[in-house]
Design a protein around this nucleic acid. Structure first.
Length: 430
DNA sequence: TCTGGGGTCCTAGGACCC
DNA sequence: TCTGGGGTCCTAGGACCC
């Protein structure tokens, strides 16, 4: 048995924990640059606001409906997520943190202790997470991850279920499949939904009735075949936990839409340098080194200019590295080669790929290692200082402008305090 | 004026090798 | 007219997720 625990409207719920007067009121959370809507409370959903709505377009409507607007506060959401996940890890033998607000629990073996009463287990879990963190959740339980997802969805949509749905019989499974539209099944996106509609398949139950061959042909090969099998109750996806519940990433990226279009080489270079530093930090935290680095520069796709909107360059590092200075050297080369004068760049990004554990790097026979032990110690010190005194306390010159400005950073006009991770953000009670 | 930032997996097709 | 076959590796691109 798998359980999927999913936080309800997670970002909005995080804001509510510290501003309980917002309970029952509409909330939306904006993307990095206050660019578009990325999260909504139920009340905001009912008012018709959608994911991805550009803020500048819906601003008047938001004001008209007294919607509470927040810039995204990842320091807060990340910390609240850690608290929820830590608690779940105490309650189940194995946990896979699937995203910032969802986790799969492996309940195999647990059945013995809680007998057939996984329902009660789930209800207690929900109540405890709420009491300890303030975050509301829903729980779906079933024999496969895909069915657990589906059960979770129904638990969320049907208040009469009390936030928990356990598909503990074939009748219940069939009933649940009939309640869910095919486009709402985990793994069915817009393209596939359209294809399925054209084939007369409208519910999850219809999809579960498809043949293996048909699914394989029309839904991306083996991926589609597995999806259908999971709906039928045949397990194709196990839990993918790691020691601390976090997954080791196979690629690491850092990208941002700029606060304003940039046309000066040194400004874009400083932005790419900043993103490179961030990505390298993440890479070292994971204990890996990278063989491949992709750098891309993008222009607005909403203006008058024709495509392509983005150009990218993949660079191979002869020796895998996690050394910021080495990666910055390569990033600078990439920006130089990609650069087109008179362009208005609106976004840039860095992707590190081809990861391998640091230290196991195969040194080529005739090349001296560019990252000496000394360099590695320097990076470790850098990370330690920044962990202790805050991000960017120490940084490399390539990531700075002489003016001290950071024009690539967007506005975050409506950001709540970092209540749980910064002293200044602590609430005062008087 | 203003439109997110991460990730995953799979397939097809070309280059290359024997 | 008539063009080997099988394997591996790599990359680009497409679909999906939150």
């Amino acid at each position: 048995m798998f359980a999927l625990v999913d936080c309800n409207n997670f970002y909005a719920s995080c804001e509510r924990v510290f501003q309980p007067q917002l309970e029952g009121k509409p909330i939306i959370v904006l993307s990095n640059n206050d660019g578009c809507v990325i999260a909504r409370s139920n009340e905001a959903k009912e008012l018709g606001f959608n994911m991805g709505d550009p803020y500048f377009q819906v601003k008047p409507d938001l004001a008209a409906h007294n919607v509470n607007v927040f810039s995204s506060n990842y320091a807060l959401y990340g910390d609240m997520s850690r608290r929820v996940m830590w608690y779940l890890a105490q309650k189940a033998p194995e946990v896979e943190i699937y995203s910032i607000d969802e986790a799969f629990l492996d309940l195999h073996g647990l059945e013995k202790y809680v007998a057939s009463n996984l329902d009660a287990f789930a209800r207690t879990l929900r109540a405890d997470v709420k009491r300890r963190t303030g975050i509301p959740t829903c729980v779906g339980i079933a024999t496969t991850k895909t069915l657990a997802k589906l059960a979770n969805r129904l638990a969320k949509k049907r208040p009469e279920l009390g936030g928990v749905l356990h598909l503990d019989s074939d009748e219940k499974r069939c009933w649940a499949l009939q309640q869910v539209e095919v486009g709402d099944v985990w793994g069915i996106g817009r393209q596939y939904a359209a294809k399925l509609a054209a084939a007369g398949i409208s519910t999850a139950a219809d999809l579960a009735g498809c043949s293996d061959a048909w699914a394989r042909k029309n839904l991306g090969g083996v991926v589609g075949a597995r999806l259908v099998q999971e709906l039928q109750g045949r397990v194709c996806h196990g839990l993918a936990p790691s020691e601390d519940g976090t997954l080791a990433r196979k690629s690491i990226s850092c990208s941002r839409t700029f606060g304003q279009p940039l046309s000066a080489f040194h400004e874009v270079l400083a932005a790419v340098g900043t993103f490179t530093s961030r990505a390298a930090e993440k890479l070292r935290r994971q204990g890996d080194a990278a063989h491949l680095m992709t750098v891309y520069l993008s222009k607005s796709r909403y203006g008058l200019e024709p495509p392509p909107y983005s150009c990218s360059l993949v660079l191979t590092l002869r020796v895998a590295t996690s050394d910021t200075t080495e990666l910055l050297r390569v990033a600078r080369l990439a920006v130089k080669r990609l650069w087109q004068a008179d362009s208005r760049y609106t976004k840039a990004g860095v992707v590190l790929d081809g990861l391998e554990p640091a230290g196991q790097t195969q040194l080529s026979l005739f090349e001296p290692a560019p990252s000496s032990d000394k360099r590695n110690r320097l990076m470790a010190e850098l990370d330690a200082v920044n962990r202790r005194f805050g991000k960017n306390t120490v940084r490399l010159a390539t990531t700075l402008l002489p003016s001290g400005k950071t024009p690539w950073e967007g506005k975050a006009q409506w950001c709540s305090p970092a209540y749980t991770t910064r002293l200044e953000g602590l609430m005062l009670v008087s």
